[in-house]
Structure formats: C-alpha cells, structure tokens
Design a protein around this nucleic acid. Structure first.
Lengths: 189, 189
DNA sequence: TTGACTGGCGAACGAACGTTCGCTTATGGT
DNA sequence: ACCATAAGCGAACGTTCGTTCGCCAGTCAA
C-alpha cells in the first residue's frame, strides 16, 4: 500500500519537529494539492491505527512513532529483515519507565554486582520506594552512603548481598533504609 | 519560583495527551483567566529554556519534557534528593538511539556473553552495518544463524570470541558476515 | 456499458489559534 | 511615599486550523 511511504514522511516530520504536522503541512509533505485529500489519507491512517485524533481534531502520534523495530532473538532464529515489525512496536520510555514521577537514573561504580551482570559504568533506572521483596536489587543507605546490593530476606533476618564473592554480605546493625529499587539496567557501548 | 509548578502541569498535559497544550488549555491548567497571562508565562518559560516555539508560534517540548532525573553515582556519593536535576536531563531515546533508521531491538538468548555482562533475557539495541572495529560486540551470521559475539581482529585474522570460557572462539572458514553492531544493552527486572 | 466506489482537487465554513493592546493590581527598591 | 517593574485581566486582531461540500477522473465488478 502506498500509504506506508506517506506515513513515513509524517513520522519523519514528527521526529524533526517534535509535533504532528498540520493538514497543510502534510499536504506539501506528500505533495497533494488539496487539504481534503490529506483529510481522507489521515482517516485511512486512523483506520490502520497508525495515527490518532483527539476530540478537537488535532492529530496525535501512536506507538508507531516511537517504536524501535524488534527483530527477534539473536541466537535462536534468523530474522527476516523484510518483515521487521513482527513483534509489537514499543518505545523505550513506555517499555522501561512505569512511574515517571518516581523513576531516576543512577550511575553504577564499583564491581560488587558484577556476577549479576551489573558492571561499573552501567546505568540503572530505579524507582524510589522503601519496600522491596526478597531478591530484588536495591539502593540502600549504609553508613551514610548509598550502595547497590541484592536484598535477602531469610525469616526475620535481612541482609544485603553483593554479587561478587570478594564482597561479604552486609548485616545492618541498626535499621536498614532502602532508598530505591532497581527496575532496569542500561549500558552504552 | 512559582513557574516550576506551572511548568509541571504543562509537562503532565504533554505526557497525558502526547502533544503540547494550546494557550487556552494552559489557561485552564494554571487557572488563569486571560490568554495574555499565558502568553507571558510561556515567554518566561522560553527564557528559562524549558519550552520552545517554532516560527509559526506553536509550542514545542524540550529535553525537560522527556528527561529522567539523574541522581548521580550509587556507590561513590550520597546524592541530595532536594537537588535532583544536577546533571543534564536527557531522554532515553536521545541517549540510546543515535540513528533511528538503522536501530533495532534484539532479544538475547544463551549465556555465551555472560562474562561481558550480557545475560540471557537481556535486550540489545543494535545498529545495522557491516563494518565493526576490534573489540566491538557484533551480531554475525554463522552457518545461517545469527550469533552474538565479540569481534577480534588480530592482524589479518578475524575471529568471533564468546565471553564465556565454555565456548571456544569461532574462526570462520569462508567469509564473515556482520549483520549489526551492538550499541547498547537493556535489562528489565 | 453500466454503476458503485475510491482518491484527488478547489473552494468555502466556523472555530480555535497565537498575538497584541490598553488597563488594573501587586510587588519591590529607594 | 514614591515610582518602576512585573503579572494578570478582558477584548480584539488576522491567520490557520480541521472539516465539509460538490465535482471529476480513474478502477473494478457485474
């Protein structure tokens, strides 16, 4: 269908201007000479679910505007580059950030969690909250500093364990204050 | 400054509607009774760099709309929650995706790269290209399947090395086709 | 060949847009 | 107490918005 190329131009406009184009702007994007042609094109795109309209008629982007195509698995299969959009398209924000209000980024230094695949220089996305379950990786306050460890609850005993055999578990003397819970990890190469 | 709370409401509107509010909409958001008051408020926000306007007067979001606050380092210091916005605010997309056209997501299965901190179930963001430098982690085509390995160039000899001592290096018999280069890693807990 | 359907064109509609004006009220420094 | 400045109000401006209309050229099935 030819609407795919036209849709691409709209997405490109959105990426460049960080807003949806007006009907006039789409008109020159896809080289129409009538706004009504655009109107009908937009309705087709809405039927396909690629664009949305709010109740005042303004155009809104959908997930397709933010999506990074998902190719599949890297060991198991041999993805066909022709059919890129197999899995649900999803934006990184949507994928990683559940509660925008309480999510923060944190640089990781030190190698105490290296056996859990968290290396120095990595970035963790954390959600600020004070409760965590057994096994979750948390940011805890110990001796006035923040430290990244795995929370272990055994009966009434709570310890902080590193994922590195060179670091002994921490058994908090007084109270244990949890500052945040790690919800995802990011690494740039 | 009181504009901070008002700015927050505008960001909230943007998050909810995926577009910038009109002056009228800001009017009711911040409970003004005149569009001119909004006009002046917006100009203040523009002076602060928190909002932008294109040449037609439409409002545009800035990095502040997408940013996840950066708290600092998790081991070294003790970040003050009061001053959250110390480092440059940045959006995940902006941070991780350089070339939107050629970036794809890929599921990782298998533990062959576990010593490089890439675990089964992780997701890698890759850029499709056929050239890679020594030491980069690449998606390569071997025997009709895709595999994730570190590229090693020693003189004219090119091998694919796993980051796991249980896996021997791969020495390609014929040609070595690189499908993509890993540029970042994502893990969800 | 006919008739239903689709897609693009050009013109027009009211509504909403960003902007500007003159005026009033609050605020802050001297 | 004074004046300068800033912030909010209400009304108006020209422009652009999304929408709708009638019309015409293709397409495809009956």
């Amino acid at each position: 269908m030819a609407t795919a190329a036209q849709f691409h131009k709209i997405v490109a406009f959105y990426d460049a201007h960080r807003r949806m184009p007006s009907y006039q702007e789409i008109m020159s994007l896809v080289r129409f000479r009538s706004k009504d042609s655009v109107f009908k094109l937009v309705n087709r795109l809405i039927d396909q679910g690629r664009i949305k309209k709010d109740k005042t008629g303004r155009l809104l982007p959908t997930r397709y505007f933010f999506a990074i195509p998902w190719l599949g698995s890297v060991v198991a299969g041999y993805p066909n580059p022709a059919e890129e959009e197999l899995l649900d398209p999803i934006s990184l924000e949507e994928f990683l950030v559940k509660n925008k209000e309480s999510t923060y980024m944190l640089n990781v230094t030190g190698d105490s969690m290296i056996d859990a695949g968290i290396m120095p220089g990595d970035i963790v996305l954390v959600e600020r909250r004070e409760e965590a379950k057994h096994g979750e990786i948390v940011v805890a306050e110990v001796d006035g500093e923040w430290t990244l460890k795995r929370l272990c609850k055994r009966g009434r005993k709570v310890t902080l364990e590193a994922a590195n055999k060179n670091y002994p578990p921490i058994e908090p003397k007084n109270e244990l204050r949890i500052a945040a819970v790690v919800c995802s990890l990011i690494r740039k190469y």
